[in-house]
Structure formats: C-alpha cells, structure tokens
C-alpha cells in the first residue's frame, strides 16, 4: 500500500537504512541510530508525516545492540502509517531526542528513559515520569525480575 514511502526513504538514505519489511501490512524501516533526526525530519517535512503517534522501546538482551527504539509515524494528509526502528546498545544507550521536531516526544521519551534507561540527547527535561526518583533499575528491561520488591518511600514531612 505505502511501499513507495519505504522505497523513497531507501533511495534518499541508502547508507542509513539497514532493513525494511511489511509484516501484516505494517511498513517498517530500520535505520542506524545516528540518522534518526535526519530521517525523522525528512519524514515530517518531506513526506508529510505530521504525527508522531507513538514512541517506545523493546529490549532484546540477546542482540548485539540490546534495545530497539520503535517510532510510529502517521500522515493525516496521505492517511499512511510508518514504523521506524533504530537499534541502540552499549553500556550507556543513547539516541537523539525527537523533541526538537515534535514537542509531544517529551513525555514519551521520559517514559522510555524511566522504563528502559535509554538516554535522549537534546531532551530538555529527562527525568523519571511513572516511577519515583529513588527507584532503582528500569522495570521494563527483560532482566528486571517481575516480583522484585523495592523499599517504600519514607514519609515526607
């Protein structure tokens, strides 16, 4: 349906696109993480994807680059959807923030930082959002035990 979008991105950024597929009709493009801002900017300004619908991450501990950032874009004018994925790895996983392009990325990225510990370069206010400040670890990482307990917060005067 919207294969031409995938093709356009591949032609525009041949050195950054590492993979693409359309499982069950969901067009997906995998890019290198350093190209994120450039590709996302092109999606918004060049291809008319004005909505950043969702932004999340998935943890694959077995992979060389452990995390995968997943972005869902939507174009209202063309009624198209596109999924952009970018692997992030290393001891200190970090990727560019999309807040300069979409102000709505702010909280989505805070949630990913809170749940996965991925840092966002250029984020104006990166701090935990759902968990409390003294919480240790990142609960949605696969190696965070389901039944782990953490001490309750001390009462504040």
């Amino acid at each position: 349906m919207n294969q031409h979008v995938t093709r356009t991105i591949k032609e525009k950024f041949p050195e950054y696109v590492t993979d693409s597929h359309a499982f069950r009709g969901d067009e997906t493009v995998v890019i290198k993480r350093e190209a994120l801002l450039e590709v996302a900017g092109y999606l918004r300004d060049g291809l008319g994807f004005e909505f950043l619908m969702d932004l999340t991450a998935v943890d694959y501990p077995g992979r060389e680059e452990r995390f995968e950032m997943v972005y869902h874009f939507f174009s209202l004018s063309a009624n198209l959807r596109l999924r952009l994925k970018a692997p992030v790895g290393g001891q200190n996983p970090v990727i560019a923030s999309l807040t300069p392009l979409w102000s709505g990325a702010n909280w989505f990225e805070r949630e990913v930082y809170d749940m996965f510990g991925i840092k966002f370069e250029g984020h104006p206010d990166l701090r935990r959002i759902l968990m409390y400040d003294t919480f240790e670890g990142h609960p949605l990482r696969r190696d965070y035990p389901l039944d782990k307990r953490q001490p309750r917060l001390p009462h504040r005067d």
């Binding site: 004005e50 909505f51 619908m53 209202l76 979409w102 102000s103 709505g104 989505f108």
Partner: peptide, 9 residues
C-alpha cells in the same frame, strides 16, 4: 499545529 505537534488525537 500545536495539537498535532503534541500528538493529540
């Protein structure tokens, strides 16, 4: 414009 940039639906 702001509503779209903020991902409102």
């Amino acid at each position: 414009q702001d509503a779209i940039a903020l991902s409102f639906t």
